Simulated assay, not measured.
Amino acid sequence: MKQVFILRGLPGSGKSHYAQTLADDLVAGDETQYFICSTDDFFVNENGEYHFEKQRLSEYHNLNLARFINALAEGIPLVVVDNTNIKKWEFVAYASAATAMGYQVKEVIVGEIRDKSLQHLYAKRNGHGVGLKTISKMAHLFEW
């Protein structure tokens, strides 16, 4: 069965860890059997350093969607979308493409969205320097 998992959650909630654990559990970490699509990848330079550029966000989201569709076209059995996906419109194109290509789609909310104490933890542990104020705003805007 071909599956797509669309992860949703605040920065620092553990989405990337969840994505890799999912791949390890479902396909024994066999890199030919899964692909993780994260827009964050496009902000990583050749030295492996993350540099967020807000003006490129839309472009990189489009590139991430394109490589997601390519992974589906290649028939990769497990494809994971590792983005915050705060608003439903942010992932509807992923879900539509996956369904059209015969994949089972599962939406997974990682972490607790509304818990203020966890928002503090997420602000401390996210690897991209997203502050508490931004994380709290994202939590407030989260669409169920």
Rank of each mutant, 00 (worst) to 15 (best):
residue 1 M to T: 10
residue 1 M to F: 14
residue 4 V to Y: 01
residue 6 I to P: 00
residue 6 I to Y: 00
residue 7 L to R: 01
residue 7 L to W: 02
residue 7 L to C: 04
residue 8 R to P: 02
residue 9 G to N: 02
residue 11 P to F: 06
residue 12 G to K: 00
residue 12 G to R: 01
residue 14 G to F: 08
residue 14 G to W: 12
residue 16 S to Q: 06
residue 16 S to G: 08
residue 17 H to A: 14
residue 17 H to K: 11
residue 17 H to R: 14
residue 17 H to F: 15
residue 18 Y to S: 06
residue 19 A to M: 02
residue 21 T to I: 07
residue 25 D to R: 15
residue 26 L to A: 06
residue 26 L to T: 05
residue 27 V to R: 04
residue 27 V to H: 04
residue 28 A to V: 13
residue 29 G to I: 05
residue 30 D to R: 08
residue 31 E to H: 10
residue 31 E to N: 12
residue 31 E to T: 12
residue 33 Q to M: 14
residue 33 Q to H: 07
residue 35 F to T: 02
residue 35 F to Q: 13
residue 36 I to E: 00
residue 36 I to A: 02
residue 38 S to Y: 08
residue 38 S to E: 04
residue 41 D to Q: 13
residue 41 D to L: 09
residue 41 D to Y: 11
residue 41 D to G: 10
residue 42 F to I: 02
residue 45 N to Q: 08
residue 45 N to D: 15
residue 47 N to V: 07
residue 48 G to L: 05
residue 50 Y to L: 06
residue 50 Y to E: 07
residue 52 F to K: 13
residue 52 F to W: 13
residue 52 F to P: 09
residue 53 E to M: 15
residue 55 Q to V: 15
residue 55 Q to W: 14
residue 55 Q to R: 14
residue 58 S to T: 15
residue 58 S to D: 14
residue 58 S to K: 14
residue 58 S to L: 15
residue 59 E to D: 12
residue 60 Y to V: 05
residue 61 H to G: 08
residue 62 N to V: 09
residue 62 N to C: 11
residue 62 N to K: 13
residue 62 N to R: 15
residue 64 N to T: 07
residue 65 L to M: 12
residue 66 A to N: 08
residue 66 A to L: 15
residue 68 F to E: 01
residue 69 I to S: 02
residue 72 L to E: 03
residue 73 A to I: 08
residue 73 A to T: 12
residue 74 E to A: 14
residue 77 P to Y: 04
residue 78 L to E: 01
residue 78 L to M: 06
residue 79 V to N: 01
residue 80 V to E: 03
residue 86 I to M: 03
residue 87 K to H: 14
residue 87 K to V: 01
residue 88 K to Q: 10
residue 88 K to A: 13
residue 89 W to Y: 15
residue 89 W to P: 04
residue 89 W to G: 07
residue 90 E to I: 03
residue 90 E to A: 05
residue 90 E to D: 07
residue 91 F to P: 00
residue 92 V to Y: 11
residue 92 V to H: 08
residue 95 A to N: 05
residue 96 S to R: 15
residue 96 S to Q: 15
residue 96 S to F: 05
residue 98 A to V: 01
residue 99 T to D: 06
residue 99 T to C: 09
residue 99 T to H: 10
residue 100 A to W: 11
residue 100 A to Y: 11
residue 101 M to A: 12
residue 101 M to C: 07
residue 102 G to I: 12
residue 103 Y to K: 03
residue 106 K to A: 06
residue 107 E to L: 15
residue 108 V to E: 07
residue 109 I to H: 04
residue 110 V to F: 05
residue 111 G to C: 01
residue 112 E to I: 01
residue 112 E to G: 10
residue 112 E to W: 06
residue 112 E to H: 10
residue 115 D to S: 12
residue 115 D to F: 03
residue 115 D to N: 14
residue 115 D to L: 03
residue 117 S to Y: 05
residue 118 L to P: 00
residue 118 L to N: 07
residue 119 Q to K: 01
residue 120 H to W: 10
residue 120 H to L: 10
residue 123 A to N: 08
residue 125 R to V: 11
residue 127 G to W: 10
residue 130 V to E: 04
residue 132 L to W: 04
residue 133 K to Y: 12
residue 134 T to I: 14
residue 134 T to K: 06
residue 135 I to V: 02
residue 136 S to W: 00
residue 136 S to L: 07
residue 137 K to C: 08
residue 138 M to T: 04
residue 139 A to Y: 00
residue 141 L to V: 04
residue 142 F to P: 00
residue 143 E to Q: 12
residue 143 E to M: 05
